[in-house]
């Protein structure tokens, strides 16, 4: 949690957001049916689907207002205005770590999981996420973020244009192979960053093992034991399937 002074400052911003949200929510609610028959039910105000949303909307606005008054009274609002005037775009170390976490989770969920082979997406994700924080160095984190972010950007471009489909049609599992190459590249890069530092090197080694073992355990357990179809079953999952069927 933040410090008290910071909190009051943040409260001012949140209170504005809350009040705006409440107004928007009320506006939406008032468009819901409140009379006449709807869905086979004779509508009265107390039956309307708008009933709870209205309560929520008013509640949020009232509490938002209370929050705002408190923030103004304790000087949070004034602090906020002051800080806006002396605004600067400098990101602290913990800010970089925050962005790094978001980058990892965001790309994993929105880019990798839905489009890339399940196994490969976990290996790629962990190959970035573990060394990025385990090296415990702001410089390394930034470098790895640039590398990882660059690869993801290329993938995004591939996937929003028809390029990915064309590639996959040309060569089976082309995108999976691309991620495989990127993963190898990422690991070589991380290994170079770890060079000459024994703690980093041992952490890199542990990280690499974890990055491979985790999906190696999870994929078969979910796919073949718990019978959960995976979001994207690309090259490696299909390979596992062939092995599974030939063993059975």
């Amino acid at each position: 949690m933040m410090e008290k002074k910071q909190l009051r400052k943040a409260d001012f911003v949140t209170s504005i957001l809350l009040i705006l949200f409440g107004i928007w929510e009320l506006a939406q609610s008032f468009q819901m049916p409140m009379r006449d028959t709807y869905g086979g039910v004779r509508n009265v105000w107390y039956v309307s689907p708008a009933l709870m949303p209205l309560v929520i909307g008013f509640g949020v606005i009232i509490l938002g207002a209370v929050l705002m008054i408190n923030s103004i009274r304790t000087g949070g609002a004034a602090d906020f205005i002051k800080s806006v005037q002396s605004f600067s775009l400098k990101i602290s170390d913990s800010g970089v770590r925050f962005i790094g976490t978001l980058l990892a989770i965001g790309t994993f969920v929105y880019l990798l999981i839905p489009r890339v082979d399940f196994f490969m997406s976990i290996v790629f994700f962990l190959s970035f996420f573990i060394p990025a924080f385990a090296f415990d160095s702001g410089e390394d984190l930034k470098k790895l973020m640039v590398f990882y972010g660059g690869v993801c950007l290329i993938m995004v471009i591939l996937f929003i244009t028809p390029a990915a489909d064309a590639l996959n049609a040309l060569f089976m599992f082309a995108t999976d192979v691309l991620i495989l190459i990127a993963t190898i590249g990422l690991n070589i890069y991380a290994a170079r960053l770890a060079k000459g530092d024994d703690t980093k090197r041992s952490r890199f080694r542990t990280g690499l093992i974890v990055a491979i073992v985790t999906p190696l355990v999870l994929t078969p357990v979910f796919r073949f034991f718990l019978l959960v179809p995976l979001p994207h079953e690309g090259g490696i999952v299909q390979l596992m399937q062939i092995i599974y069927y030939s063993l059975r």
């Binding site: 990892a104 976990i122 994700f125 573990i130 385990a134 952490r203």
Partner: peptide, 11 residues
């Protein structure tokens, strides 16, 4: 170490 544990938890 959290730096190794938390990514696994994320997965």
């Amino acid at each position: 170490p959290p730096a190794i544990f938390m990514p696994i938890i994320a997965v």
